[in-house]
Design a protein around this nucleic acid. Structure first.
Length: 496
RNA sequence: GGUCCUUUGGCCGAGUGGCUAGGCAAAGCUCUGCAAAAGCUUCUACAGCGGUUCGAAUCCGCUAGGGACCUCCA
């Protein structure tokens, strides 16, 4: 089956066909490193990490470009231009690049916790000022930008006469052009809908570069256009990002690149929906953010406990990326338990020795069901990354795995090849595609030795019906977070 | 105000007109020294009203609630 993705540009699911067979160019808008990443940021980077992993699974060679926005851009056109990064740096008495480095490191750390693969290229805006200036020059030469007092603006009105500005975001150009904004400096622009390509820098502005139009800094939208063009070409396959970036950011990217390269830059625009908290989007402007470090430690009034990176990753995968996802501690707790149960079943599955069974099916019905659920893994992913459905199927299989282990279902019910397929599919989807990983810290050899000793003592106690000792060991271990489970055959299991 | 989206059982969330989504919680049972885990079973919902249809959570309309974007935002 062919992969289908929802293209925001055409507003429908389309069969994915890459421009260059076997290769995919993918660009995702990265973080602005002027602050700490919060829960909302986890969604796009995990979503597109799964897409990246799935494309590779499908056999594509993928160049995944995700930028770092480290050049502060103005907060609002026309208003006194403020360099976000520069401004905060003053307050914290740090060099701008020191701050950028700090938050970039933190970002990298958080997303490695999420087991996100590193992008193929992670370009920084400050490292591509030259490319951005070149691109602006080209746009001016093409006649779609004009300079005013050291700033350069894109001429949206002119662009709209030939191209469909507003198509991606469903904007009506006349509304945009007639929109009136009571902002200072608005007079500079020929039309309120015009956006800045280059802003002249006020003297107090720390981040500044020389340009043909004077000292200043690049507009926000131009960095993505410049870097995407440089590393992926004039036309590339996938551009991803949060829905809130559709307008004006992505709309403007299309305009800039189209004028510069004479071709619409992106084949498939993909946008993830927002994470909400009490029904409201999580965002700086709403003052309702929960930072990732707070999620990991549980140190936030809205959190009843700490939540591990894998719990959060699983929580995000349990909903479809284009649906809004409402955060609550309760929902995270549910995901934590669900993930634990699923991973446990997966671990059990890994231990199966399929050779014990044969090629003679003793339960045709079950065999058929299992095979069907497994086949659907791929179908569901092909259908615009329906991760929740894949997970639902995994949960259909979990009781079967557990029953096979406990002997409630004879192992001979399924053929060798089915067991092997199940093992293979679970491994590929859980680990390679979903990027989930074991969080148990049971790998330490010393700890293992100590635990073996404790279990031996407890087994002896149990055999002597010394339940006081047996329970003491179990309860005290539970107090420090080690869960003991007795098994049917008298064995014992433990997890942290 | 404009554009668009959304409203599913106690909670979270899939849902392509006809077939049990799934998870968490809760209850009962089985297993068990007791637990835990596991297994089985129960709880069967689609905001309201009207329409289309043999048949609608799914399509259309109206009403009500919620949200996103229009300004930095993933």
């Amino acid at each position: 089956m062919a992969l289908k993705v929802y293209n925001s540009y055409t507003r429908q699911k389309e069969v994915f066909e890459s421009i260059t067979p076997g290769h995919v160019g993918m660009y995702v808008c990265g973080p602005t490193v002027s602050g700490e990443s919060h829960l909302g940021h986890a969604r796009p980077y995990i979503t597109f990490d799964v897409l990246f992993r799935y494309l590779r699974y499908k056999g594509y060679k993928v160049r995944y470009v995700r930028n770092i926005t480290d050049a502060g851009h103005f907060e609002e056109e026309g208003r006194a231009a403020e360099d976000k990064v520069g401004k905060k740096a003053l307050l914290e008495k740090l060099e701008p690049m020191e701050l950028v480095q700090k938050y970039t490191n933190l970002f990298h750390w958080a997303f490695s916790q999420f087991n996100c693969l590193e992008p193929s290229i992670e370009p920084t805006a400050t490292g591509h000022i030259v490319e951005q200036i070149d691109m602006i020059k080209k746009i001016i030469a093409e006649g779609y930008a004009y300079e005013v007092k050291g700033s350069v603006y894109f001429d949206v009105k002119k662009y709209a006469t030939q191209y469909d500005y507003g198509k991606l975001s469903g904007r009506i150009i006349d509304d945009l052009l007639s929109a009136t904004r009571e902002l200072d400096g608005q007079q500079e622009k020929r039309d309120p809908a015009d956006f800045a390509l280059w802003k002249s820098a006020a003297p107090e502005h720390i981040m500044r570069w020389s340009s043909p139009w004077g000292v200043g800094f690049p507009g926000w939208h131009i960095e993505c256009s410049a870097m995407a063009t440089k590393y992926l070409g004039a036309e590339f396959d996938i551009h991803g990002g949060g829905m809130d970036l559709q307008f004006p950011h992505h709309e403007s990217e299309i305009a800039q690149s189209t004028i510069c390269n004479h071709i619409s830059p992106v084949r498939y625009w993909m946008h993830n929906n927002m994470i909400t908290i009490n029904g409201k989007k999580m965002g700086k402007s709403y003052n309702n953010v929960i930072k990732l470090t707070e999620m990991f430690t549980g140190d936030h009034p809205l959190l009843t406990q700490a939540f591990s990176p894998m719990t959060i990753r699983f929580f995000i995968l349990q909903s479809h990326y284009r649906s809004p996802l409402d955060f609550s501690s309760e929902a995270l707790v549910a995901s934590e338990k669900a993930f634990k149960r699923l991973w446990e079943a997966y671990s059990i599955l890994k231990e199966f020795k399929p050779d014990e069974t044969g090629e003679n099916v003793t339960d045709v019905l079950l065999e058929g069901k299992v095979l069907n659920w497994l086949e659907e893994f791929d179908d569901f992913m092909d259908d615009d990354l329906s991760t929740p459905k894949v997970i639902a199927n995994m949960f259909e299989l979990a009781p079967i795995i557990n029953s096979l282990k406990d002997g409630l279902i004879p192992i001979t019910s399924l053929t060798t090849s089915t067991i092997k397929l199940m093992q293979e599919k679970f491994e590929v989807f859980m680990e390679d595609i979903f990027g989930l990983e074991n969080e148990n810290k049971t790998g330490n050899e010393t700890l293992k030795g100590v635990m073996k000793l404790l279990l031996d003592i407890r087994k002896d106690a149990k055999n002597k019906k010394d339940f006081a000792t047996s329970d003491k060991i179990r309860n005290q271990l539970l107090d420090i977070g080690v869960l003991l489970k007795d098994e049917k055959d008298g064995g014992m299991n433990w997890t942290i």
